[in-house]
């Protein structure tokens, strides 16, 4: 099923404009991630799609060719995985997963068969008879997913489903979730504030800021071609240079850089992995911090721009703190974005 939102906005009764008029299209079978910092309106948007929140007048929500804007939540046929799972404590794992099927008034034999099928898919067979409060965080997360998927919803909505888990488990379940969602072959919207999570799971990422979708695209597209300083900073932690542009030259405290195009009226950004410490580089600075991260070092260099510039260093002989180093940045790795771009 495709999902289309037009002019969808939400103003809470206390006047908070949590979502500004938004357009969103999700294709059949597509997995879209809503990515943005806490408080930017991700949950609000998801709850409007689910029918748990009433959008402002003028908003329209289309599931395929049905306008569901005024359809109550229980008739929208969406599956939802909540941030803290919201499993029913009065039911077993089986009871939780079968609840949606029971609401569809399916015969008992069919409910049993379908619950067993979903239990298998989510590798929960051995826990089927357990009470939900006798499960670990990861198991609860899978039960929540199984419960949402069992009634074969038209659309699956997930609100930060990994954030209640501890860090080690989160990474493991992230990859597992990415596989499961594709196995289910379902249209899904996945909310997160973690860029790695969004990139690992989604086909397409919609970056949100202050109640708006500021840019949407494939993870690679967002990473390589951010349209605003906000997206550049939030996706891949790009750093902004503090200098003056003269044509295709950028004058910095620690040297001069060649830009890929005319830099007037633009801000220049770079990512740590594109700052290379090389002998005879055009930039000169002092090493402030050296952090060993296993596969590489992260070097903090001062004196090039106002803030400390981070550089990724791969290799054995990392510079030491206090040393003076020179660095090089290839012009094509510099990102030029209009000054004070929207979404800040």
């Amino acid at each position: 099923m495709t999902l289309r939102l037009t002019n969808t906005a939400k103003t809470y009764p206390d006047g908070t404009r949590a979502l500004l008029p938004t357009e969103l299209y999700v294709d059949q079978g597509e997995i879209v991630s809503l990515l943005g910092p806490s408080g930017c309106g991700k949950t609000t948007l998801l709850r409007i799609i689910a029918g748990l929140e009433t959008p402002d007048a003028g908003s329209e929500i289309w599931f395929g060719s049905d306008n569901v804007t005024s359809l109550p939540v229980e008739r929208r046929k969406v599956g939802m995985v909540f941030q803290f799972f919201a499993l029913f404590p009065n039911m077993s794992v089986r009871g939780n997963i079968g609840y949606g099927l029971k609401m569809q008034k399916l015969p008992k034999s069919e409910i049993d068969a379908r619950v067993t099928e979903v239990l298998d898919m989510c590798q929960l067979q051995e826990f089927s008879g357990r009470a939900v409060d006798a499960l670990s965080g990861g198991q609860r997360q899978r039960v929540a997913l199984a419960r949402a998927i069992a009634p074969r919803p038209r659309l699956l909505l997930l609100d930060e489903p990994l954030s209640a888990l501890d860090a080690a488990l989160r990474e493991e379940l992230r990859d597992e979730l990415a596989v499961l969602l594709r196995e289910f072959d379902i249209t899904a919207i996945f909310v997160t504030h973690d860029q790695d999570e969004a990139m690992a799971i989604a086909d397409r990422v919609a970056v949100m800021s202050n109640g708006q979708v500021v840019q949407s695209g494939t993870p690679e597209d967002l990473y390589r071609n951010p349209k605003s300083a906000f997206v550049a900073g939030f996706v891949g932690n790009a750093m902004r240079f503090d200098g003056t542009c003269e044509g295709t030259k950028l004058k910095l405290a620690g040297g001069t850089l060649t830009l890929p195009g005319d830099g007037s009226g633009q801000d220049v950004f770079v990512r740590a992995e594109d700052v290379q410490i090389e002998a005879d580089g055009p930039l000169t600075g002092r090493v402030e911090t050296v952090t060993f991260l296993g596969t590489h070092y992260r070097i903090g260099i001062s004196g090039i721009t106002t803030d400390v510039l981070a550089s990724t260093y791969v290799g054995q002989n990392a510079p030491r703190a206090g040393e003076t180093v020179t660095a090089e940045i290839k012009p094509e790795m510099l990102m030029l974005l209009p000054k004070g771009a929207a979404g800040e």
Binding site: E74, R75, F82, M103, A148
Partner: peptide, 11 residues
């Protein structure tokens, strides 16, 4: 939230 969970399941 528990009730919302049930509602999304069609209750």
């Amino acid at each position: 939230t528990l009730e919302e969970g049930a509602a999304t399941l069609g209750a």
